[in-house]
Structures are given as C-alpha cells and as structure tokens.
Write a protein that binds this DNA or RNA. Structure first.
Length: 855
RNA sequence: GGACGGUUAGCUCAGCGGUAGAGCAUCCGCCUUACAAGCGGAGGGUCACUGGUUCGAACCCAGUACCGUCCACCA
C-alpha cells in the first residue's frame, strides 16, 4: 500500500480529468442488463444539441449523479443513460442564422442540403455538452449515448405514430393554431410564452347600437359576425339581424353566444373565426364562414388598401381609416393584456386557421393522471402533484406538425386521389404517393425517451431490465409538458407501465440574491467557470447544498468558495491521517477509547440520517449533515483527540481514523466524487471508491455512554476556551492549571483536555488567579499574573443573566397548573431538570462572582 | 381570473407544537507541529401583519399585505 505525500492544498484540476478517464476506461458506468443485481435506472433529460449546459443542468446532473452513484455503491445494476435532443425549431433556427451569415436562406440550399448542413453542424458542436458532462463528473454509460434523430429512435417515432394513427388517436384537421410568422411554423401551446404587454384598446362603431372593442383592429377585416350574450337585454333584439362591417361593406350577422361576458366592455364581440381561437369556436357553433385575411408572414391578404401591409402596419392604418369615417368611438387607450410570443424567436404569435396534425390526448392524458393518482408513479415533492393533475386533466389536443425541415418527417403519404396512408417503419408508400412535407414537434420524440433509448419497439434485454426507470429528475418548470408527455406515451407504448417510479423535482438555480439568472441581467454563472476556479466537486456540492426539494437554489461565489474549502478540509484531514499512519482494517480486537467509541457511534447515526435524507431527495440535508459531521466532529474534535491518543502510543487510533475516513469518504462520494476518490484510494489502497460498497449502519457501535462522555469533554473545553479568550490568553500560550477531574465523567480525558486547552500541570509556584467550575469539574488557572477582573466579571454576569432568565422561564412553567396538568410527562421532567440546572448554575456563578477580587 | 409556494440573523436558507439554527458576511484574538481555502472566541432575530386554537405557536387554523412561479380563450 502506498501512502504518497500529499501537498497542503487540494488542486482539483490535477485529479479530475485523469480520474474521470479512468472510471470510463474501467467501465464502471457501464450497465449490464444481464446481471443479477437489482436494477436502478435514470434517463438523462436530453439537452438540446444547440445548447451548452447552464447551472440548471449542473444541478440536474449533480442530483442524478449523486443518486446513481449511491445506488451503484449499494449494489444496484445502475444505468444512467445520456443523450441529446435534436430540438427541431431551436436547432433549425441556429443553423439558419449561420446560413444568413453567409447570405443564404434554407431555401437556397433546398431541404436535403439544409438537413445535411444541420447534421454537419451537430457533428461539429454536439460534442460540447459531452465535454461539459465529463467535467462535471457525470457517471453516465457513454456506450448507450442516444440522440433523438438516431436510426433507432426514429424507428420508435415512426412506430408509435403509426400505432396512434391506427388507433385513431392522431388526426388531421383545420384548426386555429399558434403560428410564428417568423419561423413560419405552427407551435404547440407550450412553445408559446405569454407576457403582459401593453396594447391599445380601440372601440369601433359597427352600427348605431353595436360597438366593439379590440386590441387587434386589423383583424376586423376578417370578421364574419358580431356576438352578444343571448340573455343580454340590451342586444337580445338584435340577434338574427345583421350589421354592415365598416371598410368592407360586408353584411355580417349578429349572433347570441354564451362565451360573451355581458359585463365586459360594451358586451359586443367582433368574431374573426380564422384568426382567434375563441372566435373560431363561436364560428363553429354558428356555422359562420372563416375569412383568412393574413398570410403565413403576417401580411394582410384581403383586397383593398391594406393588402400587402404587415399586420403591425395594418393595425394603425385600419384605425386611421375608421377614424376618418368617424367610427372610432373611444380613442385608443393603453391596455395591459397577455400576448403570446414564439418561445424560440420571441415574435408575437398569430393565431391562424391552418391544416395540421393533432394527437387526441384525452385517453392518453387520463391514463397519465391515473398512474399518479393510483401511486404507480410518485411525484416528489407531493405538493407539486396537484399541478400535474391540473395539467393532464385539462389538456388540449396537441398540434404535432411543424412546418420545418429539421426533425422526424411525418410518416404519412398522400395518393393522387387524396388517399392518406400512414407508413410504418418497414413499410413503403405505394408508388406515386407523396410524403407530407412537415416534421413532428420535437417533444413527440422526447416523449418516447424513457423507452426509445432502451431499444423499444424491440423487447430488448435493456428494456426488460431498466424500464420503468427508477426516477426522473427535472426542474419543476418543465414538469407539465415533458413529464406528462413521457407519461402518456410510456403508458401507451408499454402496456400501462409508467416510465418512472418516481418523479423528483428540483427548483431553479438563482443568484445570490435569489434572482433568476438571465443574460440581460448579467448574473449568469457558467458552471465550467466554477469548475475551473473551484473544482467540479465544489460546484456540485454548492448546488446540492442548496437543493431543498421543490424549492429554488440560490448560489454565489462565496458558497462555491466555501465548498472548495470543504473539499480542502477533507484533503487535509486525510493528509493528517496518512501522516500518522492511518489505515483500514478490522477494529474487532481493538481496545477502543471513549473518543473512538464516540466517533464510531456518531458515524452510525450519520449513516442512518444520510440514508433517510437520500431516500427523500433531501440533498441539502445530506450535504449539510456530512459537512458538519466531517468538519465539526471528525476534524475539530476527533482528530484533535486522536493526536493525544497517538502521542500516548494507542496504535488502534490509526485504524479508527482509517475506518472513519473510509466511511465518511464513501458517504460523500455521490456528492463530491473526485476528491473522495483520490483520498479514499490513498487511505484504503482500494481500486476505486466508485465501486466500493455503500456504508451500512453497524449497531454494535451505537454507544450513548461514550457520546455523553465526549460531550462533557466538549463542554468543559469550550467553557475554558471562553475563559482564555476573554482573558486575552493567546491560543498557543501555555498556562498552568489544576483540574478537579477525579470522579467526574471526564476523568479519563485529562491528557486530551490539557492538550486541547494548552494547560500545563501545576508547578511548585502554582498560584491560581482564577477558579471556576464547569459541570462537575473545578478549574484553577494560574495565568501568571492578575486576571482581567472586569472581563471575568462580565463573563460571569452574562452567564448569570442567562441562568436567571432560564430559571424564571422554567419556574413560570412549573408554577402553571394547566401546564402541570396537561403537558406530557417527558416535557415536565425535562423542565424540572432545567430548573435544577439553572438553580445550580445561579448558585455557582454567584459564588464565583463573590469570590472575584474587586477591580 | 384561478392554483400553488414563500415571508425566520446583513445575505441565502434550515427548523414546522415544548430552551430560535446553519453557511457566508461582521467584530476580537491567533501562522497552537493536517489545513490561514485554517484555528479559537464573540455580537446579531418581538420568526411579515391581525385574529383564533392550545397549558404552550416560528410551527396548527382563518384573514390581510407584499414577493415568486405555473396555468387560463378575457374581446
């Protein structure tokens, strides 16, 4: 076993790269579907090929890596499957922008050449994310890396499309959809971002009695009716009559429709079925014609003076024309309303009547809701399940066709006579048929991710073994659209088996003030920058330390530095242990000291608590627990006590040290994989901590008596340190002291106490300048001069005040009949004990104050 | 317009019915032979507000006020 000399500071860059490469080379992250171990599986939510990983990903990945590393150590056959999403519209936009730089549009290249360009671009830049994942230390099975446009996954897409088509769950229809006039494609509801925008509401007189208000005045060119509420006394008599639509001269009917809110505005609504989803529904109910007055670019197409104008040019032009005719009743006024924008390019979305493919989601969504309702899939934290239900229980049909070139082409072909044929993976369309030019929404293939990546539709060993996956980790922001889609497709394709047993949701990463990270605000942190400066472990630890389930994570450089310091602390603790010959081995025949038994006992509690927190995805708790155990207990106390034991020649200390560090490093490994690997190998001589077993509680080491004994030592030491500090004694300055330890709980620890407190044995000239007691122990100290009586008096008075307050409080309780009658016995007992303690403290402190020389 | 979450030390957050906690920041003292990315000590909070339940409330209930997030077809 080699015990190399370690430098005094941990340098992450020296170990991270080589460790990661070794892990991959050794195949530790490879998952074997043929093994007999219990399976544990996670699929990585595939990042967009266009993207780079941001802090949100880093959090996501840190959690998944921690979960899978722990389960691997616990002996599970662990699969963490990586991959990327082709991100249709986003990627197409990126490549189009690059083309624009060359003065080209995708149409200049043509479809085939353009798609070729996208693949090229993917080949060039797709490796960036893999690089980032390696830097983070993600223990993924690279041999199973997948891409949503892979041959296998494309096959899965085509298979499920055909199945849905054959089951009548996919249909083609003319509907109002969200249209991006810049991307020239349909968007699903989730690809539309709503913001509160300032618009202008104008009121237009259609007739003497009918006045309508609108923020989109230009759409009046496409009006085919005016609607009023059927019960509205003001207008009931008009239903069935017509008005003349200004500027066009068209006669349009007045219809009665429940949708109209009589209390809003004038109670009259203009109806534009081709350009507004509500109006479309009204139109359907009343068999109104639809007039499309705008093309796919948002340019007005109706005849007249407005033809050829962009929608935003047409708006004021229409208003001006109306004003000229005296038909603007109320001047336009600012009006805050919700406006949809394309999530990719931020262009204002135009509702547009269009022929598209849809998924009938009702039966699928019902099943997706039921799987959570009956507990086949658990959502964590459970409060968020309600949002999930809100979403799946009220889902609109899903528009899946996109007028893009990058994506899975819709496998439907049209015959010369208008025949429609859906073609499965191993089939081909009849001669003379033409394929639908559109591609599928990116989320269609993402929805298959948990099983398409495992080889579906083939019943592969991977699918048998790793589906359903154990847990899905993602931010609560995309719970609905992505998780719900995977649930729907998973249940549908896998005979009612949901894609995951648990959905674990985390919050968003925010800056140190809890503000959202945004480019425009300039508070975005690049995880790679932190990895460079603080190390991957520190970056991960910082994120996990803030990861309370379902709530946001605020991070700052100070936290990252603190995490780096923690890693360094582990480094130096191990360095100390190695310098003192720590090693691992059986503790069975050892004569353990109280300090040994104390730290071993504490370790068992910590293992149990860490396990409990892990099971509940309480990563912040795990991190906090291990941080304090490592730093406060192992480093600040046990190592200090161990120094004395080693000096006393207790060789068993080296084994206990080795034992504790071994276990501590293994507990920490899921959170901070690199530093623990390095140190663990040095301590144990083992091959790799990645495949080391997870610590289990050993009840033989539970030792409340030893814990109480060491706590007493800690109390005494802390009290005397306070005295020393108040008296201005330098930490290193040795002073003589007489300790009355005989018969006390800490009698066995004199050497340790003297060492920790720099107290020497009293010499012949010993002259106590201060006397006090801590618990049972009397302390006399010769400070080699007069003590600072003022400081000492202050200290004692403060303690006395605390004790008196405590006594008062407790006396109040004990004197309260209701309390005595109703409080549980253990509480009363505790209060009594506090009363006794307070009384004793008061007596002792008063005596000490009285004995203090005047000063 | 709905739903959910939050409001605790200067900052970020734990605690969720029986003596108010952590990290960072602040102040004081230290290169005490693992670590100055460190060690020891200290200061700092009527737990948003108002009521209620209870022997007892930061914690449970109701309401109010701000903040945040998601959803929604408000012309």
């Amino acid at each position: 076993m080699t015990k190399p000399e370690l430098p005094t500071q941990y340098t992450p860059a020296d170990v991270e790269g080589p460790s990661y490469e070794r892990w991959v080379a050794e195949g530790y992250f490879g998952a074997d579907p043929g093994s007999s171990r219990p399976p544990f599986s996670i699929v990585l939510p595939p990042p967009n090929v266009t993207g780079v990983l941001h802090m949100g990903h880093a959090l996501d990945h840190s959690i998944m890596d921690a979960l899978s590393r722990r389960q691997r150590m616990r002996g599970h056959e662990t699969l963490w499957l990586p991959g990327m999403d082709h991100a249709g519209i986003a990627t197409q936009n990126v490549v189009e922008r690059r083309l624009a730089g060359e003065g080209l549009s995708r149409h200049d290249l043509g479809r085939e050449a353009f798609v070729e360009r996208v693949w090229q671009w993917k080949a060039e830049s797709g490796g960036q994310i893999q690089g980032q994942m390696r830097r983070l230390g993600d223990g993924v099975d690279w041999s199973r890396d997948r891409f949503t446009m892979d041959e296998g996954l494309s096959r899965a897409v085509q298979t499920i499309f055909k199945k849905l088509f054959d089951d009548g769950l996919i249909y083609r229809a003319e509907r109002i959809i969200n249209w991006c006039v810049r991307c020239h494609t349909a968007l699903s509801d989730i690809e539309v971002e709503h913001t509160e925008d300032e618009g202008e509401l104008v009121s237009i007189r259609y007739s003497d009695e009918v006045v309508v208000a609108t923020t989109r005045a230009e759409t009046m060119l496409g009006d085919t009716a005016v609607a009023v509420h059927p019960e509205d006394e003001r207008y009931r008599h008009l239903i069935g009559t017509t008005v003349t639509l200004p500027l066009t001269g068209r006669e349009i009917p007045i219809v009665g429709d429940e949708h109209v809110d009589p209390a809003f505005g004038t109670g009259c609504v203009k109806v534009t079925p081709a350009h507004d989803p509500n109006d479309f529904e009204i139109g359907r109910r009343h068999s109104l014609p639809s007039i499309t007055m705008m093309d796919e670019r948002g340019v007005i197409t109706t005849h007249g003076p407005f033809e050829g104008l962009d929608r935003f040019e047409a708006r004021p032009a229409v208003v001006a024309a109306l004003r000229e005719e005296g038909l603007i009743v109320a001047e336009k006024r600012p009006y805050l309303h919700s406006v949809g924008h394309c999530s990719r390019c931020k262009t204002v979305v135009e509702p547009r009547l269009s022929l598209q493919w849809f998924v009938n989601v009702s039966p699928l969504a019902k099943a997706a809701g039921d799987a959570v309702r009956d507990g086949r899939t658990r959502i964590h934290p459970p409060e968020l399940a309600k949002r999930y239900f809100d979403w799946v229980d009220d889902m609109h049909d899903w528009c899946i066709s996109r007028q893009l070139w990058w994506g899975h082409r819709i496998p439907v072909w049209y015959g010369p006579e208008g025949e429609v044929v859906c073609v499965g993976p191993d089939e081909s369309a009849p001669e003379g048929y033409v394929q639908d030019p559109d591609v599928l929404d990116t989320w269609f293939s993402s929805g298959l991710w948990p099983f398409s990546t495992l080889g579906w539709p083939e019943r592969t060993p991977e699918l048998e073994r790793f589906y359903p996956t154990s847990v899905l980790v993602t931010g609560y922001d995309i719970l609905f659209f992505w998780v719900a889609r995977m649930m729907m497709f998973g249940l549908y394709a896998m005979d009612g088996e949901p894609p995951f047993r648990t959905v674990a949701l985390h919050g968003m990463v925010r800056d140190q003030f809890g503000k959202k990270m945004s480019k425009s605000f300039g508070n975005v942190v690049d995880p790679l920058d932190w990895i460079d400066r603080f190390g991957a472990d520190a970056t991960r630890f910082t994120l996990l330390r803030g990861a309370n389930p379902g709530s946001d994570v605020a991070v700052s450089e100070e936290w990252a530095a603190g995490s780096r310091n923690f890693c360094n602390k582990l480094w130096n603790a191990t360095r100390f242990a190695l310098m003192n010959g720590a090693s691992t081995g059986s503790l069975d025949d050892l004569e353990l000291t109280a300090a040994d038994r104390w730290i071993l006992s504490r370790l068992q509690t910590v293992i149990a608590q860490a396990d409990a927190a892990f099971e509940e995805f309480e990563f912040a708790k795990v991190a906090d627990l291990l941080y304090h155990f490592a730093w406060d207990e192992v480093c600040d106390w046990y190592l200090e006590l161990a120094k004395v034991q080693i000096a006393q020649g207790r060789d068993g200390t080296r084994l206990v040290l080795g034992h504790v560090l071994d276990a501590l490093l293994r507990l920490l490994h899921p959170l901070v994989p690199f530093v623990t690997e390095e140190l663990w190998r040095a301590v144990t001589g083992g091959e790799s901590i990645v495949v080391a077993p997870w610590p289990v509680v050993d009840k033989r080491y539970a030792d409340p008596a030893a814990e109480a004994e060491i706590e007493a030592v800690q109390e005494l030491v802390t009290e005397v340190r306070r005295f020393r500090s108040d008296q201005g004694l330098k930490p290193g300055q040795k002073v003589a002291a007489r300790l009355g330890l005989a018969g006390t709980a800490v009698a066995a620890h004199e050497a340790a106490i003297r060492s920790l407190l720099r107290l020497e044995e009293p010499g012949e000239a010993f002259a106590a300048s201060a006397r006090f007691t801590v618990g049972q122990v009397s302390v006399e100290i010769d400070t080699a001069g007069a003590i600072d009586v003022v400081a000492e008096r202050k200290r004692l008075e403060k303690d006395l005040a605390v004790a008196r307050k405590e006594a008062d409080q407790v006396a109040g309780k004990l004197g309260n009949e209701q309390f005595m009658a109703k409080a549980p016995e253990d509480v009363v007992t505790k209060v009594r004990a506090r009363a006794a303690q307070a009384a004793a403290d008061i007596e002792r402190l008063e005596a000490q104050l009285a004995a203090l020389p005047a000063g």
